[in-house]
Design a protein around this nucleic acid. Structure first.
Lengths: 210, 210
DNA sequence: TTTTCGCGATGACAATTGTCACCCGCGCCG
DNA sequence: CGGCGCGGGTGACAATTGTCATCGCGAAAA
């Protein structure tokens, strides 16, 4: 650990986004311990995060995926669209291939799981800042495995079905006919090899296809 | 912040349990910053946590609820059963009345949400160590509101139904007849004011009745 | 010792769900 | 131009699900 140099000359400037304040604060504390890393802003949702990154232009942006307002993946995609130089590290609970694929497509440099050892976070920040990629090894292999077989409609319908809505409710919600909804559901069920809508929804969710 | 006194004479000794290593490490870092708090052990699941608390006999034990092997609530209950002097703080994502009630029944001194401000954790530790209770204010009010109307059977059945099992599967799993399963489900659905098994399961879960 | 209650079970019936075959219109591509 | 795929839809049928009334049994309460 380097002696904390006050001037941020060689310090790696970091912005963190995470919706659980306590975890956010804790992660910041964790990084601040390192002498060469400085947390220049914290955000509790996607929009705040985007703002913070645009104004601070940090070296590295660490973000959760599931947040209010805008997901971390969306923020990453937006940053890429704007050609920001900031490197993005996704830090999430979910080891879902679909998430990783989307993260990489959004130009993320890192994808870490919250159950990795705490020390690895600072390491990852340093590596990423040097232009390297840091991907959770287990995920890296299966990442490009299954490429979401669902169509947009199937996804929508499945999401609502997973929340307990009946076919009729879903139909009303989406301005479709009930029969059509059942058709989509049926398609999704068979594509996923499930035996009913609930199982199908659960499966899709764990794959990150939502 | 007191000057870090190396001898642990007046230091508050803390054990932390949390299944996501990174969060665990971060929380520990957060507390270690405080001069008067010392993290003497960390656990990544319920059993480890119980062990750690029994051998370390810390002043305060901070634990997540949903963990492998044994939930934080179970650990708290076990500590109470053994008349440990250690105070327990539950630190969780879930603002569920049912969880809070069970936590209090298990003798916990604190119930904090992970989306509270990070600084409040250290405060809570100090207060709890002085014998005070620290309960999230929003939850405190509605805590004793609804007292879980479900019977054990209904709970079991509902849990499986929520995972997408069919009535037949559930019946097989529980060695019941399919009709009986449907009866329980029907009961649960009406008790919860839901309109089908999926919604019922979702409702029960958000109330912490699992 | 009755009565009540919870658990488990039947049977029957209506509603919802899952499956299939087939139809329409539109846009894209060879 | 003709064909194909895709979003959307119908109708029909079987399976599953949700609801009720009703029964038996054992244990706790009156």
């Amino acid at each position: 650990m380097n002696p904390p140099a006050k001037e941020s000359r060689k310090m790696i400037r970091v912005v963190i986004a995470e919706d659980q304040s306590m975890v956010l604060g804790a992660l910041a504390a964790l990084l601040e311990i390192e002498g060469d890393i400085s947390v220049v802003a914290r955000a509790k949702n996607g929009k705040e995060a985007l703002q913070a990154v645009l104004t601070q232009k940090p070296d590295v942006f660490i973000t959760d995926i599931e947040m209010p307002e805008m997901t971390g993946l969306d923020v990453a995609a937006e940053l890429r669209r704007r050609h920001l130089a900031t490197r993005v590290i996704i830090l999430t609970t979910f080891a879902r291939a679909g998430y990783l694929r989307r993260a990489l497509e959004a130009g993320a440099s890192g994808y870490l799981l919250k159950d990795m050892r705490a020390e690895q976070l600072a390491d990852a920040v340093r590596r990423v800042q040097q232009g390297l990629r840091v991907i959770d090894p287990e995920l890296a292999t299966e990442a490009w495995a299954e490429p979401d077989p669902l169509t947009d409609r199937e996804r929508q319908v499945l999401r609502l079905a997973g929340d307990g809505l009946s076919s009729g409710d879903i139909a009303a919600d989406l301005s479709l006919s009930e029969g059509t909804v059942r058709n989509y559901l049926s398609e999704a069920i068979s594509k996923l090899g499930a035996s009913n809508r609930v199982e199908a929804a659960r499966l899709a969710r764990t794959k990150g296809w939502l």
